[in-house]
Amino acid sequence: MYAAIIVLTVMGAGLGLGLGYAARVFRVEADPIVERIAAKLPGSQCGQCGYPGCAPAAEAIAKGEAAVTCCPPGGLVLAEQLAEIMGVELDRSAVRDADPGIAWVEESICIGCVKCLRVCPTDAIVGAPKMIHAVLPEACSGCTKCIDICPTEALRMRPIEVTLRTWRWHRPEGETRPEAAHV
């Protein structure tokens, strides 16, 4: 009886001390979660998440107010990373699967008003007053801000074109994407 009590007490104390020591020694200096999230977000302040910019969005995500899937330009990859940071299960069906596409200028309508130039968060549009503008596809984040501001509807979104280089195998037939999976 006493032996058992003593053994258990000693074991408990030993383990507790050990764990406490380990926690001290192996402590990871984690970034505050908001910063880690902000570092992942595209930073283009596009506002498609419904927050005024990426920093407020990061705060909202960290507080759990916004979903990890709230950022359309980041897509599934970003959602997975955020889910991992937040330690939540990812609902893949909530990720907007349709690729946002990138903007392009219909040259016959563009009047060269430079309005779009000013709103593009990644400086992806090149042009000068009274000259036809063009979008650099690599730099376009697909935020659609320019679409909303163009007075002549010369800016449109179109899906990113698949080429032989970027083509990928689809999931095998009959294999559906799991609705929710651990990441």
Binding site: L41, S44, P73, G75, D123, A139
Partner: peptide, 24 residues
């Protein structure tokens, strides 16, 4: 094949996002 492509696409997407972040 599918997963190899997915890994490549993911890397590309990550690079793209970080590139865009830099631009922004």
């Amino acid at each position: 094949n599918f997963a190899k492509g997915e890994l490549v696409a993911r890397r590309a997407a990550e690079e793209r996002t970080s590139g865009l972040r830099e631009l922004a």
